[in-house]
Design a protein around this nucleic acid. Sequence first.
RNA 1: GCGGGCUUAGCUCAGUUGGUUAGAGCGGCUGUUUUACACACAGUAGGCCGGGGGUUCGAAUCCCUCAGCCCGCACCA
Length: 727
Amino acid sequence: MFFIFCPLLNLGHALKRGIIRRRMNDKFLKPYNPAGTESRIYDLWEKSGYFNPDNLPARHKNPFCIVLPPPNATGTLHIGGSLMTVIQDIIVRYKRMVGFKTLWLPGTDHAAIATNAKVEKILYKEEGKSRHDIGREDFVAKVEKFVEENRGALRHQISKMGTSLDWSREAFTFDEKRNLAVRTAFKKMYDAGLIYRGTRIINWDPKGQTTISDDEIVYEEREAKLYTFKYSSDFPIAISTTRPETKLGDTAVAVHPDDERYKKFVGQTFKVNFAGAELQIKVVADESVDMEFGTGALGVTPAHSSLDAEIAKRHNLPSIQVINEYAKISLPIPGLEGEKTISAREKIVDWLKKEGLLIAEENIVQNISTAERTGGIIEPLPKLQWFVDVNKKVSERKNKSLKELMYNAVASGEIKILPERFDKEYFNWINNLHDWNISRQLWYGHRIPVWYRENDTYVGVDKPAGDGWVQDEDTLDTWFSSGLWTFSALGWPEKTPDLETYHPTDILETGYDIIFFWVARMILMSEFILGEIPFRTVYLHGLVRNERGEKLSKSLGDNIDPVSIGEQYGTDALRMALIVGVGPGSDSKLGNDKLKAYKNFANKVWNIARYVLSQENQGELKKELVEEFDTMAKDITVDMDNFRFYLAAEKIYHYIWHRLADEILEESKKDPSLLPTTYYLLQNSLKLLHPFMPFITEEIWSELPIKNKKMLMIENWPFDSAQGKPV
RNA sequence: GCGGGCUUAGCUCAGUUGGUUAGAGCGGCUGUUUUACACACAGUAGGCCGGGGGUUCGAAUCCCUCAGCCCGCACCA
């Protein structure tokens, strides 16, 4: 038997090899076809199970973790989102190859305010109705349906980028577990005295019908008129304002204590009739008044300006609300009640002119506050809301306030922000930080875990026992749940093995535009709730702009769809085009030239493989060429370890094309003794290139004649930076 | 008002801690349709590294200053 089988076996081997070679050559005869390759390769990766760190081979011991900044469930992945996934996938694939037990955890964000706004828009467009027309329950159901549809599409788009995410751990900021995390966090903060309810001047968005935080305000410069006038002919002091309609709620005029012009009036109260409103105006002296501005006297409107509210508090002045939630006059004054602020302003200016009270009218440029999501003009209003106290000292955190905890995490160097210049912006933001308004009058979002019954208030993780408890109507700022993301995604408040293993996470990679919204809030939450940092390094990427350098905006219709670009040029090419030459924090431009260049590069790599694999590959290696490669591999490894992916990508590109292909391969045509070396160099170059161009490298790798071959995605990185030598 | 960034080849941008003749992609020009690749190859032109001053043996790189563009925060009566 043995005697007969042996030659047969050999023949079988030879035949098999011949078949493999012929099949391979067929594939390699045509230019690289990403469309036909990418989904097949992605399936292979998923089936391998290696996206899940639990399935990685034994050498992957030390944990490494990135949580994906969850894209908004409102819509489709935009090009900025794909830049984010590409940078992270590069890091994660590199770390996995190096030998870390690598977890990259995916998720989506319910993005309360954005999703509300989006569905409200759709509802209005399709049915001509507002959310109030259909009611809370129906509206929330509509939003949930919308979100579910979008989440599936998002998952598909994200995986199209080649992302090696562990989908088995996917989380959603508004699923059961995350909702429990939010309620638990709220309760914990409330108990520590960090969350309180109070009436403050808040930013009201009349368009979105909700309060928003200071960070959700976008300032726009607009032309405005500054009016100088007296309330009435018998009032001694003139004041200036751009908003005469708010003056219906004035209760004082504030002057500087050193202002000689007005000293004699300080302490006096005047009764005036201002445009139909009976006002009692007290003259007070306050340091905050700028003597140089306008008349040096400030009409104090405690209900509609936070600065004025502070003055009012110091001088114990009453507050009269003039404007309601619909940005209309709420005072019962004939001719003004129910008027929009702008028309009320015109009427009052007319009245001032008629009465001869208007002293001056000048054009100025003013910063106007608008709501980031809806564009509505912000109306400062007094309202009962929930806040996070950022200045209160927390006993269980060494008597530090949230501000201090946030500040120290970065100032101590425990958290490193890249690029470093964002440190200053971060510190500056903290120094100007006020209490965080976390309640929203939106319907979709985490409901505030507070219940009321008559005069009782209950704050807890679950509804209290007994009848008659009514839950607070408001929902939480979406960034409240986002702030918990690094640990809620890992299973907190449950003490999960994942939480134990992977928190603090290693890198937080996101756009610099949400450093305050999100990065700072995550530090706040993690520092208070867990008493540790949420991540060690923050890597901030910039905006992707179009070829003309303009900011991409969906409304202008020039949004670049990453999936269709991937289909057109290949995802590997898109990844390179997004990453090469783009350092942290700097904006980049994506144009066809760049995409074409890397599509060509993919084809180049393809043809190198085709040529090398058609040649002899057994034999001695040329020592100098191996050493040269090792030097480059070391250089690239140092770049990778120092977050210079943009340089590393360029270096491997340059080596493969202009050194390996143009010089070494050409030389090997004259000197066939180099052929085994070219095979060796190709093999190792594929490893270095894999984090950047995972699809084509894995595809070529699958054709290499290696015994007991592993997938390229878990191959050893060719340089060991810990040992300082080639692997 | 406070803080930050950018200005390098025709275009878009790299240039890591100061160190030989400053790089890439695209574009231009001249060749090559050679059996890995025309999605290619060989070659070539093109830069007082925004202006000025300083430190240094040496500056695109560090310091000062001026100009233009951009961004964040604050003010906004």
